[in-house]
């Protein structure tokens, strides 16, 4: 009986496992194998030659290859950290606002918030590149009305990456607000009623009921926000091309440049493996942190 059950489970799982194996595991293993090879993406795999850790030495070395990779890694880290730090609190604030059914305009706010997530990135990129225009951009014109001088936005290495982060926050916050609302609906109303009877004010209710019970939702949101941010590509490819001075050159864009444009498949794979490892470390650390808090 158990044997028959196992066989039937195996048959049922086989299509999904095969698909995952072919389309996820094989490319991952191939990338790991390629990161130890010197290989041009325009040649067959048979022409790859083993170089050991040579590609890693190169991407962490002092030549332009190493400098560009380290800059891209740092840019991706800053972009991810800023995105998560801005998106999560904003999504909770907006979620709380939208969740209050008696607040006027709540439905309109919910619609507006989520609509940004539905706009295709190509349209977002086109509009925001014009909004950020240093000379004729509406953002600078609005700042001018309140006496603030024109900002360079995408034209300065100091502000270009932050400008791309703001664009990302604008587009993604609606989606994460929906996740926050979903988390809020899971909190029993009786807890708030009891807290109110005990004399807890709104801030205390947030601190001792809402925030602790939203922790799992926020963990999920953080993981998704990190993965989304690490994979950023379109705004960089469409607006800045990684510039100025490589200040918006993020890893996905850089890997595409190295691996496809320059056909340096081995180097590109080493960079992709480093990206994958960084992501795994980051997400694992986040889970460990939240689990430790839970056990405390």
């Amino acid at each position: 009986m158990a044997k028959a059950f196992r066989a039937s489970a195996g048959i049922m799982l086989a299509p999904a496992v095969t698909l995952i194996g072919v389309f996820v595991l094989v490319p991952m293993l191939l990338t790991i194998w390629l990161c130890f090879q010197d290989w041009s993406t325009q040649t067959p795999f048979s022409e790859a030659s083993f170089v050991g850790l040579g590609n890693f030495q190169e991407i962490f070395g002092s030549t332009s290859v190493g400098r560009d990779f380290k800059t891209a890694l740092l840019n991706t880290t800053i972009y991810t950290a800023l995105s998560v730090v801005l998106i999560l609190p904003l999504s909770v604030v907006f979620g709380l606002l939208v969740y209050q059914r008696d607040v006027a305009g709540g439905t309109a706010l919910r619609t507006v918030l989520f609509s940004t997530y539905m706009v295709p990135m190509i349209a977002v990129a086109l509009v925001w590149s014009k909004l950020y225009s240093p000379s004729e951009g509406p953002l600078n014109q609005m700042l001018g009305l309140v006496g603030i001088g024109p900002q360079p936005w995408l034209s300065s290495p100091r502000s270009a990456l932050v400008s791309i982060v703001l664009l990302n926050v604008w587009q993604q916050v609606g989606y994460f607000t929906v996740l926050a609302i979903a988390g809020l609906t899971q909190i029993p109303g009786s807890l708030y009623e009891a807290a109110t009877l005990d004399g807890a004010n709104g801030r205390e209710q947030f601190r001792f009921i809402t925030f602790p019970l939203l922790r799992r939702t926020l963990l999920f949101s953080a993981v998704i926000a990190i993965i989304n941010a690490v994979q950023v590509f379109e705004p960089v490819a469409l607006i800045t091309q990684g510039g100025p001075v490589g200040s918006t050159n993020v890893l996905t864009y850089h890997i595409r440049r190295v691996g496809i444009e320059r056909a340096q498949g081995g180097l590109g794979s080493a960079m992709a493996v480093m990206l994958m490892l960084s992501l795994m470390v980051c997400v694992s650390a986040l889970f460990a942190f939240v689990n430790r808090k839970d056990s405390e």
Binding site: S129, S133, P134, S135, E136, P152, L154, S155, S156, A237, L238, I239, T240, Q241, G243, P244
Partner: peptide, 22 residues
């Protein structure tokens, strides 16, 4: 340099600034 940026289509502020007499 802030007036010198180009975009993926090789247009952008550097062109805008020359075109607008800046």
């Amino acid at each position: 340099p802030a007036m010198a940026t180009a975009d993926a289509n090789t247009t952008g502020p550097f062109l805008d600034n020359f075109v607008s007499g800046k």
